[in-house]
């Protein structure tokens, strides 16, 4: 998002999730992606949310993979060990299309390393026996 290079000035509209009100915040971005102005937020929490979301939005990714050799479950739940860039979310699940876990699996076990070049591991969030 706006990393380096001379771009054009632009506005970005997002919905604040810090409270149920869901303010529609308009962020005016400068040519280099820097925040020039912010409007629509009803409180300071909206300001901080919008700045973070514009600068480097990140998301946790959760999904499941098959559990080979397990007697109790067909699949184990997994998540990214930490948040990944929002733009990489679909790359993460694509990279997991061929990933399988082998029982036994404990919560926290690493199921895949450095998924989709994000530098983030995929860890199990459920067990398989």
């Amino acid at each position: 998002m706006g990393a380096g290079g001379a771009g054009k000035k632009s506005d970005k509209v997002l919905t604040c999730i810090r409270c149920p009100r869901g303010c529609r915040i308009t962020v005016a971005l400068g040519a280099d992606g820097e925040v020039e102005a912010l409007s629509g937020n009803a409180c300071p929490r909206g300001d901080s949310y919008a700045r973070a979301e514009v600068a480097a939005p990140v998301r946790m990714v959760t999904t499941t993979v098959p559990a080979d050799g397990a007697r109790d479950v067909a699949r184990v739940a997994v998540k990214t060990a930490r948040e990944v860039p929002k733009d990489a979310v679909l790359d993460v699940v694509r990279a997991l299309a061929d990933v399988r876990a082998t029982a036994p699996v404990e919560i926290g076990d690493v199921v895949a390393r450095d998924v989709a070049g994000t530098g983030v591991d995929i860890v199990a969030t459920s067990r398989a026996r």
Partner: peptide
């Protein structure tokens, strides 16, 4: 057990867990 998404446990544990982790 089927709620594999995260967002559970912030109040209880101070961290965001998935459903199976919270249940476990």
């Amino acid at each position: 057990n089927q709620c594999v998404h995260n967002g559970f446990g912030l109040v209880t544990f101070g961290e965001e867990l998935t459903g199976p982790e919270y249940a476990a």
